[in-house]
Design a protein around this nucleic acid. Sequence first.
DNA 1: TTACGATACGGAACATCGTTCCGCTTAGTC
DNA 2: GACTAAGCGGAACGATGTTCCGTATCGTAA
Lengths: 198, 198
Amino acid sequence: MPTTGQSGEVPARGKRADALRNQQALLAAAAEVFVTSGVDAPIRQIAARAGVGTGTIYRHFPTRADLVVGVYRHQVEACAEAGPELLTAADSPFAALRRWADLFVDFLVTKHGLAGALQSDSSGFEALHAYFLDRLVPVCGRLLDAAAEAGEIDRGIEPYELMRGIGNLCIGRDDDPRYDPRRLVELLLRGLQRPPSP
Amino acid sequence: MPTTGQSGEVPARGKRADALRNQQALLAAAAEVFVTSGVDAPIRQIAARAGVGTGTIYRHFPTRADLVVGVYRHQVEACAEAGPELLTAADSPFAALRRWADLFVDFLVTKHGLAGALQSDSSGFEALHAYFLDRLVPVCGRLLDAAAEAGEIDRGIEPYELMRGIGNLCIGRDDDPRYDPRRLVELLLRGLQRPPSP
DNA sequence: TTACGATACGGAACATCGTTCCGCTTAGTC
DNA sequence: GACTAAGCGGAACGATGTTCCGTATCGTAA
């Protein structure tokens, strides 16, 4: 149930065979290019790698966000589904929240520029922001609720704010040993914890 | 003692009068344009507002960072100097750290796109990153040291990492009531606190 | 005051990138 | 095999960063 109803990777009955082929080729090409050049890679570069013209890329993915969502949808879904699973598997709701945050951070830091694009106000990226939040905020909310009910945290933050905070902490070059988003997210979550014995 | 020796706003003996006039005009124009269009504003727009050609802006400020540093140097200096002052004025080192972080956040959130530019890896912004960190990391380090010595925090983070974390949390449109960087920075710092009675 | 050399200026020109548009190609069908 | 509409490619346009050089201006010395 993406915000933008179009494109994605659903076969979409009624399309021509070459159209489907190109759509898949574009997703594959984009995935490859994103690894080396980041999600801001020039449109032409992706089109060239897929062996199509620039017009074709716009027909299948009208905005950059559509393409990025198409490439990472599986992983976002997996992350969303991991929330409830962790809640039952982990030692405590708060432990589940921490492990879920780790999962999300691991996802973001391995995608050059994705975290930055999520907050970017440049044209074409708002839908990306929206998709990630629509999908993940409810999951985060359930984890927070559970941890609050268990008395592990104070309910001093909304899921939306926490998600954006975690996302923001993941921005930046990922090869700087002096900056590890994981440590900061851990700190953020620790700040959420209720002091054990008031 | 700027990282880049050139430009800035030091009179720079030996320059021609019109050169100095243009340099000041550019700083003033940039300050105005940054308010409305952010630090990513088109070069031409700044040049036009200053009444100069595009070549002139590059002569005085070879990179975007030089211009941004020139515009905000006063405020960065003020922030850096506020660190030691707060340390003597506040109730405790940790309280000083919190107030100092507030100061820094207030500075960042009122400058459209500045926080984002600080982490950007686009060409021309690395020097900006460097200037802010060179100037503020030592100040932050002294505050952290004092708080650690007073037993208020665990020394689980390096000043560099904390500065970048705070900066990152300030990224994003500043008119979204659902996202307040101050709340998240507060959380981050709380996560640093040593549990009062071990 | 004027003439001269160095300094600085302006904006045209080039490259890159996002985006649109339209003539041509091709898949699917009868 | 021919027809139609869906789809394709890439030229073309506008915005932007950046460079370059002919020209204007400043400071100075006669």
